[in-house]
Simulated scan of single mutants.
Amino acid sequence: MADLSAPPDDRNASPIHVLVVDDCWVDRKIVDKLLKTSSFKVTTVESGKKAMEVLGLSEEKVDHSSPIVNGQNFNMVLTDYCMPEMNGHDLLVAIKKDSRIKSIPVVIMSSEYNASRISRCLTDGAQEFIQKPLKIKDVQRLRNYVNPASATTKTGTKRKVLVDQIPESNEAERRPPFAGVAVG
């Protein structure tokens, strides 16, 4: 039976392979299950340092010749921000510095809302900063970062302005459902 959760033109494509990085076992399991339910292939690791190894970025495992790291072809990295030893921002910077994998989209997750942290991650190359817990609507958006033809490309500075406009209360602005729509 065909997978109806994938967009129609992606049903026969290979699944999107996501490297999930989170020091919390429960959070890793939740994200793993949510992504797999949405037809993603998932590899999970418990730390930024372990992610560096899997991505071939650790000193002892560097292979500068191959864009496929350790036999894995990752389409995205989804990482928690707050982790011991190496946080999500440090992992993001390491990925974006490596010419073999800098094009892999990196999405940062955190249960903490911190506007300057969010802005810094987006400016340094993160595709998005998602507030935990991960929700199904977030998972649907992740697919667009791997298939940019179906998404609007955003630059870091444009996203920074948008982040600065997020209300301090962390609540979405409420608008009437038909605001801005002309009815004839």
Rank of each mutant, 00 (worst) to 15 (best):
K41P: 01
V77S: 02
V54Q: 01
H89Q: 09
V54K: 03
I136A: 12
S169M: 03
Q72T: 10
V42D: 07
K61N: 09
L55E: 05
Y113V: 11
S99Q: 13
T123S: 13
P148D: 07
M86P: 01
V62S: 00
V62Q: 06
K135C: 08
I166W: 03
S58T: 12
R141V: 10
I166C: 02
C121L: 03
Q127L: 07
S169Y: 06
S116C: 03
R175L: 09
E59M: 00
G88L: 00
H64D: 12
A172S: 14
G56S: 10
M76C: 14
V146W: 07
M109H: 05
I101V: 15
L122F: 02
V106M: 01
K154S: 08
V163R: 11
S103F: 08
P133C: 15
M76P: 06
T157H: 12
D124H: 12
H89T: 02
L134N: 08
K160I: 07
K96F: 02
R117I: 10
D164G: 09
T155H: 14
M52P: 00
P105Y: 13
S119C: 07
S99M: 09
V106Q: 06
N114P: 01
I68C: 05
P67T: 13
M83T: 01
V45Y: 00
L162E: 11
K135Y: 08
K49C: 03
Q140T: 14
D80E: 10
V146P: 08
L142C: 11
L162T: 07
K158T: 09
L142K: 14
S169D: 14
V163M: 11
P105C: 14
S47K: 08
T43A: 10
L134G: 07
